[in-house]
Simulated scan of single mutants.
Amino acid sequence: MRPTATAILALAVQSYAGLIRMGCSQLNIQRIDPLVTPGAAPSPHLHQLIGGNSLNITMNPATHDLPSLSTCTTCQAADDFSNYWTAVLYFRARNGTFHRVPQLAPLGFEGQAGGMTVYYMTGQLADLEQTNKATAFKPGFRMFVGDINAKTLEAALPYRQLTYTCLEEMSTRWPETKYFPTKPCPAGIMVNVRFPTCWDGVNLDSPNHMDHISYPESGTFESQGPCPSTHSVRLPQLMYEVIFDTKPFNNPADWPDDGSQPFVWSFSDTTGYGTHGDYVFGWKDDALQQIIDEPCYVNCQTMKMQSIEQMNACTLEPQVVEDIDGWVNEIPGQSMGMRMQKH
């Protein structure tokens, strides 16, 4: 039987081994993608980015050391200067105009400026004991998960745990779907991004940012399935939860006449199958390994913490400036007609 959402939240006050749950405020929203299209300003589509403020359009892994170059981070863990990003969600009105859907702060992080919740786990979230061992990501490590061109369930299935939760309330966690919710969600839509948890132990990146990582050979991370021999190093489960505040757009009279759902990703996907996530590791020294080795659940003594006010105060001026809010005729980057200005 699945644990209730209340039971999961109650675990946060107990102590088990190696699970981090932290809020990360929004750093900025702009069209850059230093992992997939480094140097491009603007990149093809809009992202919301969080983490260390040394983020830029290139982030050459040979020279860009995030902990030494960043002066602050939007994440609760003060030693985490990693960068995390996802696409941006838009609402499509009946008249064909679009409005960006903002992110909501999760439970327990009220006051956080948008962003997301980030997890590092050695076992599944609801495990009463996080006793499994994992090797922390190494300096220079980068990865991507998903396929922005996926338009069918079959195309999305290789990415096992990229899902959506229609929130009846803020503590809702099930069920999950691979596609956009097809009805108005009372408390918003949560996007769940879980990365593969097996590494080849050698390469910090790969040309498609995925070949150096793998899902378990059989089973799942949650069932503790074994890693394949080609990717034998077990990583912590990195997971994003991004809550989009769809409540202002829940009036059925504003939804398409044909009964389809009205939300669209910033790369023009209306199915939801193209959801994806990007990660560039940037923890200071061996701080992450110390935390996931510690018997702790959320409240870890080895994790240096900062306040929500400090998280929110860490910002970065965008390098690509364009109209991303209010009602727009086109999603930025999805046609040649959008007005754009570069610094």
Rank of each mutant, 00 (worst) to 15 (best):
L107M: 15
S68R: 13
M121R: 13
T165W: 07
I20Y: 09
P207E: 07
V101W: 10
A78I: 00
C314M: 00
Y120W: 15
Q112P: 00
V145D: 14
K133M: 09
A5C: 07
M305S: 08
T302M: 04
G108P: 11
L66C: 05
G274C: 03
D278L: 04
T86C: 01
L49A: 02
Y297F: 13
R21M: 15
F109Y: 14
R31E: 03
A41W: 00
L35W: 03
R194N: 11
V118E: 06
L49C: 04
K133R: 13
S232D: 14
L153E: 10
A105K: 02
F109S: 02
Y16A: 12
E322L: 12
D127V: 04
T182H: 14
F180N: 07
Q30V: 12
A17D: 13
S218V: 01
A40S: 13
V13D: 08
A156D: 06
S70G: 04
S171T: 14
H209E: 10
T165A: 14
T271L: 08
K247R: 15
Y119G: 05
T117C: 12
L238R: 11
C75Q: 00
F249L: 01
L55W: 02
L27W: 01
G114A: 07
L235V: 05
G96V: 03
P186N: 11
I243Q: 08
Y179F: 13
G146C: 09
L46A: 09
R21N: 13
T117K: 13
I324E: 10
E322H: 09
Y119Q: 06
L19R: 15
T271M: 07
D286W: 08
L128K: 07
E330F: 14
V202A: 13
I50T: 05
F267W: 10
S25P: 01
M336K: 10
S229N: 08
W327E: 10
D245L: 12
W199I: 03
